[in-house]
Amino acid sequence: MVRYQNAALGVLIAGLLWQLIRQGQWQNLAVGVIAHIAATIVTFLPQMLAWRAIYGELLPNPGVVYPYDYPNMHWLSPHFSYALWLFAYSPLLLMALWGFLRPFPKTLPIAFVVSVGLAILGQLYINSTLPSFSGYGVRRMTDFFPYFGIALANALRILDEQKGQKLSLSLVGVGVVTNWLLIGSYYLHQLLSDSKFHF
């Protein structure tokens, strides 16, 4: 499923293009642009075909696809509580955020780090403008989890170097268990109150 917040992925492309232009890698730039266009078509085609089958158009109006969300987006008054709930229910993301703000290895291009940071902020903002944040957390940020993973790996690398591996493993364990308990409690409450799950 393609959602509004996926548009923030475009910032990643901008960062990569800026890096290639800055380094004068014109051949890599041309090959990368062609490969990206081809990959976008192949990846996005199933979604467009699904839209065509359901709504009769390859690119339907967002107001038709999301009749409740689209007209009621709070662009000027976003609910930033979404971000608070995101980190509350996924404490490992808070650790990843700390890792993102720490120095990365020099082998990781600065353009990549900056573009990932801007893209994550963009997606958090778009999610915060939705009229309702039911189903908040993991579901709306899954396409960015690989990048959170890079930041988490950086946090663990720094903790390993400064405090030892036991602390980093303990923090990861506590974060995973906390996430499981919170998510389990959330869905158990749904099951007991409504006799059904809502993902």
Rank of each mutant, 00 (worst) to 15 (best):
L130Y: 01
D143T: 15
V65P: 02
N72I: 11
A153E: 05
L169A: 09
V138D: 12
M73A: 11
G56N: 04
F104G: 03
W85Q: 07
G135V: 06
M48D: 00
P71H: 05
V113W: 03
A155T: 09
G32A: 01
H74T: 01
Y55W: 13
T40R: 09
L118Y: 06
L93Y: 03
R52D: 12
L130H: 05
Y68A: 09
L58E: 03
L171R: 04
L94H: 02
N61Y: 15
V64F: 03
L159I: 05
A83S: 08
R139Q: 15
S77L: 13
P62W: 00
V172E: 04
T107D: 13
V172H: 08
S90H: 14
F100C: 12
L58C: 08
P91T: 14
T43S: 03
N127W: 00
M73S: 09
A111V: 01
G63Y: 07
I150W: 00
N154K: 03
L59C: 06
V42H: 05
T107K: 14
A83D: 08
S132K: 14
L94P: 00
P109W: 01
Q162T: 15
Y70K: 14
G122D: 02
F80Y: 05
K166I: 11
S81T: 12
F104Y: 13
G149S: 13
G32F: 01
F100M: 14
V65T: 07
G99R: 00
L121F: 11
V42P: 11
S134E: 14
P91V: 12
G137E: 01
L93D: 00
L171D: 07
N61V: 07
E161N: 12
